[in-house]
């Protein structure tokens, strides 16, 4: 009898090892699209998360605002000055937008890579496994979120949607980007420089931008934006600013360290970016707007 028990335990042990190894292998190879049970699990957990997020977030906001009160006066002075600049800037932008529209109408261009619509969402939870830099937002495929859409805050790009279930979706932050999530990027105001954001250096909290163009004109202080090529990201979403440049290990291409424009550790409100160009047929909403 004991030998039988021992044999049964051994079989259970071996079976579970096989199951776990195949699970890990499956999830490493899968393309990330989620099945119906997985979506159900995401939505159930997401429902509880949004319920609990409200009171806990309110407490955290309250304690945060107490510490903010001290700095309000100084901030107010600075903001007043900036507001005056803003007015003239807003006027300028309006004029340019109008001009751009007219020119586009003349050239008969409907949508370009830079056109996009945004969808506001709130971050309700963050993966408690901190090695996976993932957050959950309270908008899902019911609201129009799809996989691979870019996600940004007011300051700049923060990541992309890797999993959209019905009512919530999971966002992979830039700080968790590896070889499997590369972003095609260009340097602002210099079309000659293009390359890929191909990883994150967690020691310095900086993104790694590999320059793929021939003549290297990289300089410190340049801003890096998405290129809109090769993917569903629109053109011109701010990623960050170059802080240092070095040659790669073979000395062939240069690698720039990019300081992300958005604060990846403190994210509350995000915008999911829906590029218009991929829509072959105009949707109803667009018709109503125009």
């Amino acid at each position: 009898m004991p030998s039988f028990l021992r044999k049964r335990k051994l079989i259970v042990f071996l079976l579970s090892i096989i199951i776990i190894v195949s699970l890990i292998g499956y999830s490493l190879r899968s393309d990330g699209s989620s099945s119906v049970p997985a979506q159900f699990a995401h939505d159930t957990v997401g429902l509880f998360q949004s319920v609990l997020h409200r009171p806990i977030g309110a407490i955290a906001d309250f304690s945060g605002s107490i510490s903010d009160i001290r700095e309000v006066y100084e901030q107010n002075q600075v903001l007043k000055q900036e507001l005056q600049d803003y007015k003239s800037l807003a006027y300028e932008v309006n004029e340019l937008e109008k001009e751009n529209e007219e020119l586009r109408a003349m050239a008969d261009v409907d949508t370009t890579l830079s056109d996009y619509e945004t969808l506001n969402a709130t971050v309700i939870a963050r993966s408690s496994e901190r090695w996976f830099q993932q957050v959950t937002i309270n908008k899902g495929s019911q609201h129009g979120v799809q996989e691979n859409m870019a996600v940004q805050t007011a300051k700049g790009m923060v990541g992309k949607v890797i999993n959209a279930s019905q009512l919530t979706s999971t966002v992979q932050l830039l700080s968790g980007f590896g070889a499997e999530h590369q972003v095609s990027a260009i340097v602002d105001q210099n079309e000659n420089i293009f390359g890929m954001i191909e990883g994150y250096d967690s020691e310095n909290d900086q993104l790694i931008f590999r320059d793929l163009s021939d003549d290297s004109e990289l300089e410190e202080g340049q801003t890096v934006v998405t290129s809109g090529l090769g993917g569903v990201f629109p053109r011109g979403i701010l990623i960050g600013e170059i802080s240092s440049i070095e040659l790669d290990q073979y000395g062939l291409t240069s690698i720039a360290h990019v300081e992300p424009a958005a604060d990846l550790n403190d994210i509350n409100q995000v915008k999911v970016v829906d590029r218009e160009l991929q829509n072959v047929e105009p949707t109803e909403e667009e018709d109503e707007e125009s």
């Binding site: 998360q49 806990i56 309700i124 939870a125 993966s127 408690s128 957050v135 550790n265 403190d266």
Partner: peptide
């Protein structure tokens, strides 16, 4: 399980 993920989001990592 839900509480630990919400707390991870709310408490700033700085």
């Amino acid at each position: 399980l839900v509480l630990q993920s919400v707390l991870t989001e709310v408490i700033p990592s700085s």
